[in-house]
Amino acid sequence: MSSAYAHPHPRLSSVTSAASSPTASSSRFSLPSAATLVTASKAGTGQRPNIYDRNLNKTRVAEVSGSAFSFLFSEVVQYTQKRVSGINDLERRLNTLGYRVGIRVLELMIWRAESSSKAPKREIRLLPSLMSIHTHVWRAVFGRPADALEKSVENADEYMIIDNDPLVERHISVPKDLSQLSCSSFTAGIVEAVLDGLGLPARVTAHSTPTAQYPNRTTVLIKLEKSVLEREELLK
């Protein structure tokens, strides 16, 4: 991290004050050169700082266009679909892509929590972690909390996060011959990565559970590993 952020975290100041901005020494990294970045941003809307120098804690202006995301995600699904042999394989690959996003989401959320609150907290228990995914991860990624968090009646190790109108599937109509497919596997990957990062390994899958009112309703099923439940038992 560098001094380029407007308000670096006080704990980081001594380490970073001497370091130069990452774009100034960009030849060491595989980043576009500083000159192209500056001209690109100037050509747009005047004097906006380039993306590497933006403040990570400003969540209000960090939102991206929903349409742009839909087009990108559509291409992601098409690209993936060309390289797989079946629905399971496609879901697994989308899950893997989501996992890569989830790792970064968790890091970003912890970074934001550290600099915004006086007593940043790291979730270690199961239920608060799940609540935090339901509320904070969803808000960070999709702009609003998920619609429900439920515990399975049959299996003690299963929890479900329910989204009535998932953003990633808003414009997707799955054809009948792929009716088993849920593109929210991408979301499941994000959840899996966050749970892994919090030390609560689990297998996460997504399933379409449409209702008359919400045709896109999706359930993200979390199946926790045995070790997690055993540890919860000890912490009680």
Binding site: S74, V76, Q81, H171, I172, S173, C183
Partner: peptide, 9 residues
Amino acid sequence: ADAVMKNPF
């Protein structure tokens, strides 16, 4: 634009 062009299928 929404339901056709953004649909990967």
